[in-house]
Write a protein that binds this DNA or RNA. Structure first.
Length: 567
DNA sequence: GCCGTTTTCGGCCCGACTGTTTTCAGTCG
């Protein structure tokens, strides 16, 4: 089986991390990181590009990196990386991923104290051995202890998108086997929880042994952790555990139902049944055959409850009263209102993005590149912005049944001002305002800062409102209740950012927003064509937040949306 | 590392914040 583009990208990211630790030239490291970003953003499999000898056409890939890609695709690994892995202790990259720790500090801890792991660093900090090192103090020591504690809490959790990537691939693969009748991912993956512990797969088959034998040899698998008559647990090369349960076809739906959970949802159902004089055990004994989950819920006297709702957040009560909301679906989304292009830090042109959006069946997109103060992301000067908007207007004239909205993702400066003059914002179709700097402001300052953006009449949407990054950092210190109230008062839209490491607003906060009557935009914040496909993750957050199509602005047809934005 | 080019080597990377300092190195987006 071919390597996924993402897997090749991971190799270059790791190479960049290790070279950074070694103090290699900044620009070389940046070139590797850029190449990794480009590769993972390519929709076409790398093998095909390689076979045509077209690396030279891919921006950011030169002769040297092209040769390395070929080496990876041929041998499965990169010699240069293997050598570095031998040279640098494996825990170092993880230490460097802690907030506030870069290559210099990691090297300092390693050279002066022999620290090579997160645990070792934790011990050194607790023994107060870091504070006397140059550039360190008691505060730094405490930060490290705190950050390691946060890190350990999410240890072993995987981003939903990574889990779905692997689950989808394994599902497709298993379905090609002759005796496999049905396959579904269960558990937290099926409930679209933002991070998951492992992947549960339920497989309906008449020949479990054959399925196990074949899956054990799948190229993504590393080792067998457990194998019994009906269960196979595997460690994958991606570091994700896959737990496969095989069942006869007639028990598939029931097993999927129990496996999907959540525990809290099932417990609540059990209580509900008790009040009706029934018992869950009657279900569990498997004497009744259900062909799908709809029938199971029907048997319980309830309408079907979507997997995303099964968290015991009132869904059983609502189902009993027949008042479950009509959940938004991916097909309801008519456009993407947060996209970056080559004008700032994106990889594609406006034309390419528009073409992809039309292929996806959208009616519109908004081009929202960064504003002038975000220099590192190539933020647009006012002149460039004007030029870009002019280009968009001229592109629009050639479009039929598709609209490109002029837009900007403007910075909310530390004082709460928007990094773009009002007269320009006024003439821009869609203005997103986001925080990209001074993340450590205190709660009061940060709350006032965001509210000040909400109150700006030219701001349509607040982008990634809490700023959390699932893989790296908590959100900024924000009184979200006040932010929601201000948004409701000012009719400012809040974003569900679909980027898998953001998912911001999250499900709980998006639901609170809905309760206050705030409108939501589900956007990808894509920087390349492939990541325009991440809309499904934002939609899953909305569904977990009980949002209906009417709660989401980008379910509106183009004309209605434009009218809505001009209000 | 890649890119562009007055084809062969120079440019690419900016500014703010933090904690440690007492003028700055390291980190981050």
């Amino acid at each position: 089986m071919n390597m996924r583009n993402e897997e090749v990208a991971w190799i270059f990211y790791e190479l960049a991390d290790l070279l950074e630790f070694k103090g290699e030239n900044f620009f070389k490291i940046r070139a590797y990181r850029n190449a990794a970003r480009v590769l993972s953003g390519l929709a076409e499999p790398l093998e095909e590009i390689g076979q045509r000898g077209e690396w030279i056409k891919v921006p950011g890939i030169g002769k040297i990196i092209a040769a390395k890609i070929d080496e990876i695709l041929t041998t499965g690994h990169l010699n240069k990386l293997e050598k570095l892995r031998c040279e640098i202790p494996p825990g170092i990259v993880e230490i460097m991923s802690l907030p506030g720790i870069g290559p210099k500090r990691a090297a300092l801890f390693y050279e002066k104290l022999g620290v090579t792991t997160i645990t070792g660093l934790d011990e050194a900090a607790r023994a107060r051995r870091l504070r006397n090192l140059p550039g360190m103090g008691a505060k730094g020591e405490q930060d490290i202890i705190r950050n390691i504690r946060t890190r350990k809490k999410r240890h072993g959790r995987i981003l939903l998108a990574t889990a779905w990537l692997l689950a989808g691939e394994l599902k497709d693969y298993l379905l090609t086997l002759p005796d496999v009748i049905n396959v579904e991912a269960g558990g937290s993956v099926r409930r679209w929880q933002e991070t998951v512990g492992d992947i549960d797969l339920i497989v309906a088959t008449s020949d479990p042994e054959l399925v196990f034998d074949i899956l054990e040899k799948h190229p993504r698998m590393k080792e067998v952790l457990e194998r019994s008559g009906e269960r196979l647990k595997l460690q994958t090369k991606w570091g994700i555990v896959v737990d496969l349960a095989v069942v006869p076809e007639e028990h598939f739906a029931l097993n999927l139902f129990f496996n999907t959970g959540s525990r809290a949802h099932l417990d609540k159902l059990k209580d509900f049944l008790t009040t009706k004089g029934m018992e869950m055990a009657e279900l569990e004994d498997g004497t009744t055959v259900y062909s799908n989950e709809q029938e199971i819920y029907k048997g319980l006297g309830l309408p079907y409850i979507q997997p995303e709702l099964r968290e015991d957040r009132g869904e059983v009560e609502a189902a009993a009263q027949n008042s479950l909301p009509p959940l938004v679906e991916l097909e309801d989304i008519k456009g993407d209102l947060h996209i970056h292009t080559v004008w700032s830090d994106g990889l594609c042109t406006i034309g390419e993005v528009a073409k992809r959006a039309q292929e996806k069946g959208y009616e519109y997109i908004a081009i929202t590149d960064h504003s002038q103060s975000l220099k590192i992301a190539g933020g647009l000067s006012l002149d460039e912005l004007e030029k870009q908007h002019k280009e968009i207007r001229s592109l629009n004239e050639k479009m039929d049944g598709f609209t490109i909205l002029t837009g900007i993702e403007a910075d909310i400066l530390p004082g709460g001002e928007i990094d773009c003059p009002d007269e320009i914002l006024k003439d821009t179709d869609l203005v997103i305002a986001s925080v990209h700097s001074a993340f450590k402001q205190d709660r009061e300052t940060m709350t006032a800062r965001v509210i000040s953006a909400i109150e700006n009449k030219n701001v349509d949407i607040i982008g990634h409102p809490t700023g959390r990054l699932l893989s790296r950092r908590d959100g900024y210190d924000l009184d979200l209740e006040r932010v929601l109230e201000a948004s409701a008062d000012c009719d400012t839209i809040l974003e569900i950012n679909s980027s898998p490491d953001r998912l911001d607003l999250n499900d709980i906060n998006a639901r609170r927003a809905k309760e206050k009557g705030i409108k939501i935009a589900i956007n990808t914040d894509a920087h390349d064509l492939k990541r325009m496909d991440e809309m499904c993750y934002g939609v899953s957050v909305a569904r977990r937040a009980w949002l209906a199509p009417g709660d989401i602005v980008n379910t509106m047809p183009a004309k209605e949306l434009i009218k809505f934005l001009r209000k």
